[in-house]
Amino acid sequence: MEDLRNKARELLAAKAVQVVVGYGRGTGASRRAVFIQSAAEAGELLFDNACRQNLAVYLMKPEVRKLGKMALVAIPATLRTILQLASENQIQDLELLALVPDASGAVTQLATFAAIEAHVVLQDNDLSAAEKGELQKYEIMGMEQRRQFWEEHFSRCLKCYACRAACPLCYCSRCTVECNQPQWIPVPAHDLGNLEWNIMRAMHLAGRCINCGDCSRACPVGIPLHLLNQKLISEVYTHFNSRSGMAAKADHAMSTFKPNDAEDFIR
């Protein structure tokens, strides 16, 4: 922890960055995002297993961006988000620094996209065995059972869009749900509006989601949104051999194609 704080002090004092976005104390035992703008505040920084939010979401928030160059305390998902955002031309190289604390508390500073790429390839970027197992549980269910499972969950959706807000890759300044001429997605949170919203969200993140899980954690009514994303992560990997957030310049699974993509379902 002291390593991280010292690093932050050093960067802020040298004016190498204007803000360090990291984790600090939250309510109870929780952790929350803190925005450290002076060396004197660096003592607020914390790092432990409770630090789970993907702080890359703040890279796309105008008020935070306005603060100046940012150092971002990064967990594995954060690094992949940075690369994905870079590949979507949302951030430029050298616009930010990533600070990666390891289990011992030592901090690696990654200053370029190239350095982040080199770090990311060493991570395990596949779905975990537990995640694959959970997915499979639903894949082998009967269709009707799956329908009921999702119908029950979606019927509780409040359309609060916390999932969207928490997602660092849902950065559109005007989301499709806000396009009302015509009204693509019904505004009311009735079962149709909720189903269409959740299908749209999943589709727009296909080939882009980096599996941080913040959507599910954000959902106040506990809809397991991560399952949808993970399903599409696994499909995109199986069919197109593509994984999001691995390189700052990359072809996107859903905006490219291969002439020999599967078409056994097309007659």
Partner: peptide
């Protein structure tokens, strides 16, 4: 070709949601 990719993903999603993909014919 672009469309085909999207259909591949869309069909899996529908199926995962328990929506009968036999209702959409490509």
């Amino acid at each position: 070709f672009h469309a085909r990719r999207r259909w591949i993903v869309f069909r899996s999603l529908l199926d995962f949601l328990g929506i009968d993909v036999r209702r959409v014919r490509f």
